[in-house]
Amino acid sequence: MSIKRRDFLKIVGYGIAGSIISLGGGFIVGRGSEILAMIDKQGEKKGVKWAMAIDTRAFKSEEDFEAVIKACHQAHNVPNIPDKNREVKWIWVDTFERAFPTAETEFISEEVKRRKFLLLCNHCDNPPCVRVCPVQATFKREDGIVMQDMHRCIGCKFCMAACPYGSRNYNFYPPREYLASMNPEFPTRTLGVVEKCIFCYHRLDEGKMPYCVEASQGKMFFGNLNDPESEVRKVISENIVIVRKPELSTKPKVFYII
C-alpha cells in the first residue's frame, strides 16, 4: 500500500499541530503548582478577614444569651414568629449535640454537654450558599463577610439546602406582621426572601463592633483574623477552640472556645 504525497504531508501537518497543542497544554498543566501558589498568594493578601470567637464558658444564664439575641434581633427587625419550625432567627441558642452533631459526645464532660451554644451564620471562607445562589443575592465581600441581598433574592431556597449549618431563614410568614417594634435604621423584609446574619457589616464600616459582641460584655470576641495582634487571634490561639462541621471544608469563621 503506497501513500500519496499529499496525504503524507497532511498526516505530518496534523502531527505537528497536535504536538504543538499538547506541548502548550502540557506546559500549562505542568505549571499547575506555580499557578496554585499564585492563587494562594492572592488569598493571603493582607486585607481584613473578620472572624468571631464565642467563649462558651462565660455564658452562664438564660439572660446572658437573651441580651445578645435581643440586641441583634431588635436592631435588624427580625420578626418574632411563633411557629418554631418556620421562625426567622439570626442568632440563637442550641444544645451541644445539635450544634456539633458529628462530634463524639458520649464520654465528654457532663458540664460541656449541658452547655448551650450560640449559633449564627459561620461566614464560611468557602461558602456553599454563595456557590449555589443563581442570582448572586448572597455573595462574599473582600473582608470575608457573606452578604445577603434581600432585594435581589428570588426565594428559590437553594442556599438553605446548601448551608450545612441551618443558618439561613426563609420568610415563611409576612415578616412585618410579627414585629413588636421597628428600627427605622434597618430595612424590613417581605414574604418569600431569604435572610441571615450579616456580621453587622454596617457597624464594622463605622468602626463599631457587631451588636451581639457589644451586648455580650466581653463573652464574645471579634476582629481581623489576618492580624496576628488582634484580640480574636489571641483568644483563638490561647484557648481550645472548635468550629462546626470542620470535615466539610467550608472553613467557618465563628470559633467556639470550649
Binding site: 443563581p134 442570582v135 448572586q136 443575592a137 435581589r152 433574592c153 428570588i154 426565594g155 428559590c156 418569600g192
Partner: peptide, 29 residues
C-alpha cells in the same frame, strides 16, 4: 414546578439578568 416554589416570582428573571455560571440553577434553566 420550580417556578411556582419561588418566593419572589416577579424577580425570577434575575437569573438571566445576573447570569451566574457557578450556580446549577442557571445551568438547569
Amino acid at each position: 414546578s420550580v417556578f411556582v416554589v419561588m418566593g419572589q416570582p416577579t424577580r425570577v428573571f434575575n437569573v438571566l439578568l445576573y447570569p451566574t455560571p457557578n450556580s446549577l440553577i442557571f445551568w438547569d434553566l
